[in-house]
């Protein structure tokens, strides 16, 4: 807990870290508090009020079916951030497990796992997502799972690269000499030393996943009604970009600000946790 406090205070020192923390915290709270904060039912249609611009009663206006956009965005935050966090978590779990095994065990297992990584990196990710998500009329869970399952390879490479170096360190050799089991060494001495890179990759990945999901929903391949992500909401603004500008303006801002939040937080975490890039700090 102390380490966590320490980390937050270090992040807070730089402006980008501060903005990142605030935005991520803000969006998390908005998503969690959606039922309390939403002024209207997000799926209740009111055709008398369809496509009405922002007003006092509907701060962000209404969509083509007269649904309150603010309420839809708040509930959409749950979908978008949920998919972002869920898929990033899965990708980090898979990537760390593969990277750690490959880098620590080396030999045949390393070669085998890295071949699989190479193979999967040759897959056109977005197209597969389009097919799987587009053809499967997917739930939130399926979307998050597919996104995560297709995104762990880069993390596996990063983790493996670091583990290969760490396993040659004297403290690892000492632990081996003392007779600790490989599993024990990997979890207690190796993993904590790569956790910095893992946290950085994970944070940046959440942003990427939110963006990919939004792109899919924007193209009409996203989660199915009544669920709506920010991309789904934004899709409605496509028909008349200027006439219903508030739809894409508000949904676009939500996606953009959350991405800024995760990207700034990820960058700042890298500066704090990874001493090698100290030089690039301005």
């Amino acid at each position: 807990m102390n380490a966590f406090k320490n980390l937050i205070s270090q992040l807070w020192k730089s402006p980008s870290g501060r903005i990142g923390l605030i935005l991520v915290a803000l969006f998390s709270l908005l998503a969690l508090g959606a039922p309390l904060l939403s002024p209207y039912d997000p799926i209740k249609q009111n055709l008398l009020l369809k496509s009405s611009p922002p007003s006092i009663s509907h701060l962000f206006g209404t969509d083509l079916f007269g649904r309150d956009i603010l309420s839809r965005l708040l509930y959409g935050a749950r979908v978008s951030m949920g998919i972002g966090l869920g898929s990033a978590f899965l990708a980090v779990f898979l990537g760390s497990a593969v990277g750690l095994s490959a880098g620590f065990l080396r030999g045949g297992i390393d070669t085998f796992l890295m071949r699989i990584v190479d193979l999967l990196l040759g897959f056109p990710k977005f197209f597969i997502l389009l097919l799987v998500v587009g053809l499967g009329s997917p739930s939130i869970w399926l979307t998050a799972t597919v996104l995560g399952a297709l995104s762990w390879m880069e993390i596996a490479r990063v983790v493996r690269g670091e583990v290969v170096l760490i396993r040659e360190m004297n403290y690892v050799k000492a632990a081996t000499a003392l007779g600790l089991s490989p599993m024990n060494i990997a979890m207690r001495y190796v993993l904590p030393n790569v956790s910095g890179s893992i946290i950085v990759s994970a944070t940046l990945l959440v942003g990427t996943m939110i963006l990919v999901e939004a792109s899919l929903s924007y193209l009409g391949f996203g989660v199915q009604p009544p669920d709506a992500s920010w991309g789904t909401i934004m899709n409605q603004g496509r028909i008349d970009p200027l006439g219903t500008w508030w739809i894409s303006a508000s949904a676009g801002s939500a996606i953009f600000l959350s991405l800024i939040g995760f990207n700034l937080l990820g960058d700042s975490l890298r500066d704090v946790l990874d001493p090698r890039t100290e030089n690039s700090q301005s």
Binding site: S16, G207, L211, A214, S215, Y218, M234, G237, R238, P241, L242, W245, S248, G252, I255, F256, L259, I260, N263, L264, D267
Partner: peptide
């Protein structure tokens, strides 16, 4: 750079189009 790194292409495209 951070701005354009985080802006979704479909949003930027829509704004430029508009």
């Amino acid at each position: 750079l951070m701005f354009f790194y985080s802006v979704p292409s479909f949003w930027l495209g829509l704004i430029l189009l508009g």
